[in-house]
Amino acid sequence: MNEPVSKLQEILDAGQFAVTGEIGPPKGTNVEPALHEAQQYLEGRVAAVNVTDIQTAVMRLGSMAVCHLLLDRGVEPVFQMVCRDRNRLALESDLLSAYTLGIRNVLALTGDHVAMGDHREAKCVFDLDSVGLLEAMARLEAGTDLGRDAKGNPNQLDGVPKFFKGCCVTPCADEVEPQIIKLEKKATAGAQFVQTQAVYDPAAFEKFMNQIQHVKVPVLVGIVLLKSAGMAKYMNRSVPGVQVPDAIVQRLTDAPKEDRAKVSVEIAAELIRAMKPMCQGAHLMTLGWDHCVPDIIQQAELA
């Protein structure tokens, strides 16, 4: 095993249960609140913080800038990169830029279609897919890029980056085999950790984990904080590969309004406790409720 390039890698290499958090950059330049939240609630509690990259194709401040600002404040970022908005030139260039800014954890994602976001008339790029992006990183790490010189030989880099490369998977997709196949390909392409789509069904997750035993990559189970029964129902209806069991929906429905945040935290913590033995970490997506993270970690007995 190579020397770890980030704290996250170090924890996972050491076989410790890793917890990551996530923040979304603002739509505008007012970046301070997001940084503040990350610092206040996540720093010291999670190994690293994902910074989303124009999530759901809604235009926002860039992920790389926020990652850099987090680094400045001593918070280790996971730089999310989607393939929707940049061709391979821009992706490779941004990877080099990120590296020079000190960013080491990179999560390669396909990215939501522009049709999902607020710039529906934009042109989709998808020059590379997530497997291709992982391959691009591996290529840069090997000192070349995806292009060729006039003689057809790989271009040589002047200074070589080194990343901790991640990818994602949807464990509870209605059809899991294609997900597993693609995960295998991502691992082959160089993925070193996996963060999953939200999971609410530990039994299904256990089954999935058994099916991917051969993929020797640490998995951080995705936990999306359910803020209300409405949100749970919405996810069941509209978010691919996410199934919130009826019992959980019921608990949220039954919870009095003032207790709702408490119940949300309880549910998240229970899920983590249940799935902790099956995987190598948890990725907490609180969707703005970062203040709940300390409670979740405490109740999940991760602190």
Binding site: R84, D112, H113, V169, A173, P178, K182, P240
Partner: peptide
């Protein structure tokens, strides 16, 4: 595939449909 992917479906595949629209088949499915 709405995104012209070449290594398989993205996470947007849902019951055989594409995330872009419920009326659109997921090509990778």
């Amino acid at each position: 595939c709405s995104k012209s992917l070449i290594n398989g479906a993205c996470g947007g595949t849902n019951d055989g449909k594409c995330e872009v629209s419920q009326d659109m088949d997921c090509g990778w499915h």
